[in-house]
Structures are given as structure tokens and as C-alpha cells.
């Protein structure tokens, strides 16, 4: 069974393609991590999945439905939430408003409120800062807010673009552990883009290594951890 199925994805900006035929599968309740050096095309991949970029070729199927050509603002309604690179906390809005934004399209207002309360329980640091503006938060708090805001949509697949960027190792560890728990307890699937290879592989079920827009390895996370040749060639440790 697959939740997300990507076939032969070719994506470019104005000039030459950046992704050259990427294949990828994410089963439900699984964490798949996408690894690769700077400029490998990880962000480009996520932005294409959520509809911010249009693929030149290839298919994206989510829950059996094609996502190609679906407008960005509709993708989240289908159950796919994208936390972008840099987190995307709206700096001018308060913590509370950012969280409300996460469920703004949903008709089930009761469940939205429930989901917001769950986020505050998950991240007590946010509960203490409800009325603070986004720009007053620390990096870690912003990551919690961005993650929590995405969860208010009750997604089935979460796209995370380098959540550990700029965070202390302790916070990174907490966030990775939380992802694992959500995955195991709620069946959430995660496509986790990371440069922090060690912590990503420690939490993920599967890994995909991207190099210059091509998938050069796809295997169980444990297997990637143990493959010294691959680690040296593409992951730098």
C-alpha cells in the first residue's frame, strides 16, 4: 500500500531541469527521509509535491489521486501539509493566530479547537507565548509552531524541509522523537528532508539519497546507516 507515489518527476526552473526523473514512494505511517548535499534538489522536490512548482514531466499520486495541476491551496485539503524551508511562521501574526491559520479552511471547528489544544499540550512553550508575535519567538519555538500549525490540518502526510536547521541538538532530538511518536500512534506519514543525516536516519524507516537531481540510493534507513561506501560518497560521514 502506498500513500504517495512519485514517478519520473522532472522539474526545472527557467533553464535546465533540476530534478531528472525522481521516483519515490511513501507508505502510510512511515517516515521517509530525503537526504542529499546542498543543491541536490530536495526543496524543489517538496515544492513540487505541494503544488508550488509544476513538474515538466512525471506523475504524483496521493491516496490514488493525481496531484499534478491541483492548486496549492487545495492540496492541504487533500491531507498533505508542507512545512517549508525556513518554517514559514508568519512573523506579524501571534502564535495563536498562526495556529488558527492552520485550520482556517476546515469546516469542523470543534476538531480545529481540539487540534489546537493538542498542539499546546505537545509544546507547552507555545502555550506560554500565545499572544507573542511570530518574530518574537526563538528558532526552536518557531519550528514547534510551524509543525503544530501543520498538524492542526490533521494531515495524513507531512512534508518537512530541514526542521533541524539552526536548532540545538536537544531540540532536534525532541522533534524527531515527536515525529516518530505521531507516526506510530496516529498513522501520520512523514517525508523528511534533512541535512542532519544522523538524526534523520535514526528516526526514519526508509531513506532516499538525492544527488544532482537523481535518486542514487533508496533503502531501509538501517541499511543506509550501515553502508559505509554510500555514506562517504553522498552523505559525508
Amino acid at each position: 500500500m502506498t500513500l504517495l507515489q512519485v514517478d519520473g518527476l522532472v522539474v526545472g526552473y527557467s533553464a535546465a531541469p533540476v530534478l531528472h526523473g525522481v521516483d519515490l514512494t511513501v507508505p502510510p505511517a512511515t517516515i521517509v527521509t530525503v537526504l542529499g548535499a546542498n543543491g541536490a534538489g530536495k526543496t524543489t522536490l517538496l515544492r513540487t509535491l505541494s503544488g508550488l512548482l509544476r513538474p515538466a514531466e512525471g506523475g504524483i499520486r496521493f491516496d490514488g489521486r493525481s496531484l499534478v495541476g491541483v492548486p496549492v491551496e487545495r492540496v492541504v485539503r487533500l491531507g498533505l501539509a508542507h512545512v517549508p524551508e525556513g518554517r514559514g511562521v508568519v512573523a506579524e501574526l501571534t502564535v495563536e493566530e498562526n495556529l488558527r491559520l492552520g485550520g482556517v479552511w476546515r469546516a469542523d471547528r470543534r476538531d480545529v479547537r481540539l487540534a489546537q489544544d493538542e498542539v499546546y499540550e505537545l509544546f507547552p512553550a507555545l502555550a506560554a507565548r500565545r499572544k507573542h508575535a511570530g518574530h518574537q519567538l526563538s528558532g526552536g519555538e518557531r519550528q514547534m509552531l510551524a509543525l503544530g500549525r501543520a498538524l492542526v490540518a490533521r494531515p495524513r502526510l507531512l512534508l518537512l524541509d530541514e526542521p533541524s536547521l539552526g536548532l540545538a541538538p536537544r531540540i532536534t532530538g525532541q522533534i524527531m522523537a515527536l515525529l516518530r511518536r505521531l507516526c506510530d500512534e496516529t498513522g501520520l506519514a512523514v517525508l523528511l528532508v534533512e541535512q542532519n543525516v544522523r538524526s534523520a536516519l535514526s528516526v526514519a524507516d526508509q531513506g532516499v539519497v538525492l544527488s544532482l537531481g537523481r535518486v542514487v540510493a533508496a533503502a531501509d534507513a538501517a541499511q543506509l546507516r550501515d553502508d559505509a561506501g554510500l555514506r562517504h560518497a553522498y552523505l559525508g560521514f
Partner: peptide, 23 residues
């Protein structure tokens, strides 16, 4: 909610779209 979406769309159009706001 419309007001919140209008403010968010003005401040951060791309993020707003990702959150389902019809910018």
C-alpha cells in the same frame, strides 16, 4: 477568519497558500 486570512495572505502569500488560503 476572513480578516485573519486577509492579513496572512498579505504578509506571507506563499505560506498562506500552503495553509489552504485562497490568496
Amino acid at each position: 477568519s476572513t480578516g485573519l486570512r486577509m492579513r496572512s495572505a498579505a504578509f506571507a502569500p506563499e505560506v498562506s497558500r500552503l495553509l489552504g488560503v485562497n490568496v
